[in-house]
Computed example of a mutant assay.
Amino acid sequence: MGRKTLWVAAASVLVGIAVLGLKTLAWWVTGSVALLSDALESIINVAASAAALLALNVSARPADANHQYGHHKAEYLSAVLEGVLVVIAALTIMREAYNGFLDPRLPEQPLKGMMLNGAATALNGVWCMVLLRVGKAQRSPALVADGKHILTDVVTSVGVLGGFVLVPITGWPQLDPLLAGLVALNVLWTGWGLMKDSVGGLMDAAAPPEVVARIRELVSLHAAGAIEAHDLRTRHAGRITFVEFHLVVPGGMTVAAAHDICDRIESAFEKDMDDAVITIHVEPEGEAKHRGVVVL
């Protein structure tokens, strides 16, 4: 794992604290239940970013006697935790929205609240794009989950700002908590998506179809001398893709020659795919199944 990933994760905690401060101040000057809900979600953002940083540090540890395949799945645990925190935030927002609907009141100093919340939203918007870009480039589930989480916060804040514009115009104070409740539903849906994707990683879900297609292509192009490859299996663990398959070679081929083919395939994977771990089981031609990957 690059130092860039860890630096971005650490910076995410600091950005979260800054956003929380701005949103808390916006709620304090307005008394808006929607802004209170927005600030409550930002508390979850800070906790989730800290969890992501911890998970990235754990996943960067090398394999040891008790974890011989490494610690990469720690990132998925962080993403699951983040999904749970998003759900908690959504339920908390719903509760505050309900209480505000029962006792509605017009926000005080709405312009000042909008400016503070707008600054926090702009900061969050820029930072979530950074997290998503770096997370995808580094294949980090923790950073991607953190970016998606912050994106829901941006959506929440935009909705709140929209409500601030409409409440003074309509003179309807119930609009403030009603808007907070509607946005909470979107937050809840995003939290469910985070948990679903992360559980797939913990359950050793296969690599995406486009990645599997590239794996088959690499084997086909660089296994000259072999007959076929079958029983291809893949799984993701954080940024690592594990690839396993059986390689069928002529029965009279020497072990050294078969080993050279395996080395050539592994070298091709190393150049084309970052962080791929390949396991190849060599078999004689009598084990051919005449299906799977055809060697060109």
Rank of each mutant, 00 (worst) to 15 (best):
F245Q: 02
G16R: 02
E285G: 07
G238V: 10
W172E: 12
P107R: 05
M203G: 00
F269C: 06
V8W: 07
F245H: 02
A18K: 07
A226E: 00
K23G: 03
L56Q: 09
N45T: 08
A18G: 03
L232T: 08
L77G: 04
R216Y: 01
I150L: 14
H149A: 07
Q174M: 11
A207C: 06
S37K: 05
I44E: 13
G70Y: 11
K196Q: 13
A207P: 01
G2P: 11
A48Q: 10
D260H: 11
A50C: 06
L77A: 12
L188D: 06
F101H: 06
L53Y: 10
M253A: 10
P107Q: 02
A26I: 03
E210C: 01
E41M: 04
C262M: 12
A79K: 00
A288W: 06
A205Y: 04
R95H: 13
R239D: 15
S198T: 01
L188C: 11
A39H: 01
L232F: 08
R214Q: 15
A237N: 08
D263A: 09
M253Y: 11
S49N: 12
A47Q: 05
D275R: 13
S59G: 00
I88V: 15
V154Q: 04
G181N: 09
D263W: 03
V144P: 00
H67V: 04
D153T: 04
A180T: 06
I93E: 02
P110T: 05
L182R: 05
A97V: 01
L232N: 03
V293Y: 05
N66E: 14
G83Q: 04
A55N: 07
L56E: 08
M253C: 10
A122T: 14
D274N: 13
R3D: 14
G113Y: 04
A256T: 15
V86C: 11
R264N: 15
H149W: 03
A48I: 06
E270P: 00
T190S: 15
A11H: 03
G70V: 12
K196S: 13
A60K: 12
K73I: 13
S140E: 05
A213E: 14
V282D: 08
D274E: 13
V199T: 13
G251L: 09
K112E: 15
S42W: 01
A258S: 15
H72T: 03
L53H: 00
D153G: 08
T234E: 11
R235A: 10
K73S: 13
S157N: 12
V154P: 05
Q68I: 15
R105G: 14
V154I: 00
I265A: 10
A79C: 05
G31Y: 01
F164C: 06
E287A: 10
P104M: 06
A39V: 02
W7I: 14
L54I: 15
I150K: 11
L175N: 04
H259C: 08
I43T: 13
A205K: 04
L20H: 01
K112F: 14
V294C: 09
T30A: 02
S157V: 05
G200Y: 10
A18V: 04
V255Y: 10
L194P: 04
L25D: 03
I280V: 15
M1L: 12
W172P: 00
L6I: 14
K271A: 14
V154H: 03
K4P: 00
D103S: 13
R291N: 14
N99T: 09
V167A: 00
E283A: 02
A63L: 04
I265H: 10
S78P: 01
G292W: 10
V87E: 08
F101N: 02
V167T: 04
L143D: 02
L54C: 12
